[in-house]
Design a protein around this nucleic acid. Sequence first.
DNA 1: GCCTGATGTGTACGGTTGTTCCTATGAGCA
DNA 2: TGCTCATAGGAACAACCGTACACATCAGGC
Lengths: 187, 187
Amino acid sequence: MSAAPVPARRARRHDPGRRDRLVATTLDVIAEQGVAAATHRAIARAADVPLGSLTYHFDSLTELLAAAFTRHVDTVAERFDERMRAAPDRTAALGALVEHLTGDLLGSHRDLVLAVELYVAAARNPALRAVTQEWMSRSRRSLERHLDPGTAREVDALVEGLVLHSALSTDPMDADQIRSALLRLAG
Amino acid sequence: MSAAPVPARRARRHDPGRRDRLVATTLDVIAEQGVAAATHRAIARAADVPLGSLTYHFDSLTELLAAAFTRHVDTVAERFDERMRAAPDRTAALGALVEHLTGDLLGSHRDLVLAVELYVAAARNPALRAVTQEWMSRSRRSLERHLDPGTAREVDALVEGLVLHSALSTDPMDADQIRSALLRLAG
DNA sequence: GCCTGATGTGTACGGTTGTTCCTATGAGCA
DNA sequence: TGCTCATAGGAACAACCGTACACATCAGGC
């Protein structure tokens, strides 16, 4: 009779697409708590999956982080290229750039934080450096739809600086200041 | 006869100023390996002191990091204010600013890395945020010796962005580009 | 309907971390 | 000279980490 103390194993859950969901959850954890806090256990808890599930789907934590950042870069880079493709001329492109900065990026604290976490993690992690390289080269290519390579390079650098400043500064510039700075530089 | 296996305790070393040396060593470790790697043990090894010595001199690791970053900020902020004090007029001040950026900061990879490690650590650590606040307000005050508050603010933001970009980008701007960008903005 | 391999689950292991604590020492003062 | 307390030294603790692994389950091809 005595019910043997059954280990109460959680019912197995059929969960196709769990791999994708793990990538998404990883981005959430990074955005909310930083790369340093993005441990296997923290991600597993956030995604409500057992610990072992992470190493089943991803060979290592680094690989998971790389997959997550790659997805984020894909999203942002694609959105930016759309804006550049839609701009008919150089002036419109600069306007779209300002819009991208003040609207897309600065409007979303999440995207901002993710960008910085990536930059910094990449500074010490070769696997992530490849992701930032790819990002930079994509956005450079988008800019070159309308700007000569030299200017594209300068603008790209300024944008990167502005993004970092906006994310980290305790007292970031507002949209108007950014607009005026950008136009003074490349207008 | 049998020599009792004496624990071979290291000779006690009289070491006045060890506290200061620990702060300096902490900065070295951060510069070389990043905040994430700046553990009690790593610092103790680098300073060649026993582990317990760290928590004797500093109540916690965070307190040690804050002490280290505070020292670094003092050094850099003082050097910058000297340059601003020495400049006779606005034009000279802008020149000195460019010199500070391209010479002092970008010339020293160490200072650059320390600045970024501080920015990023501060983003998630309130104790360090106070240090960055102090830094920003000091450099703002130095700039206001020659610039109106509005421009000082903009320049400060751009400088911060440039520093971050220089440290993190895989393809940083060179001194000439920075000079031209700065002068276009505030010249 | 059965088999099987892909997927899900729980646990364990060795290593590292921040911090605590007890003991030892000797510089400086009474 | 002798005392004492700030400092030095070493070991231990519990918590957490990435990763490996053994086992359970079940969807999908036969």
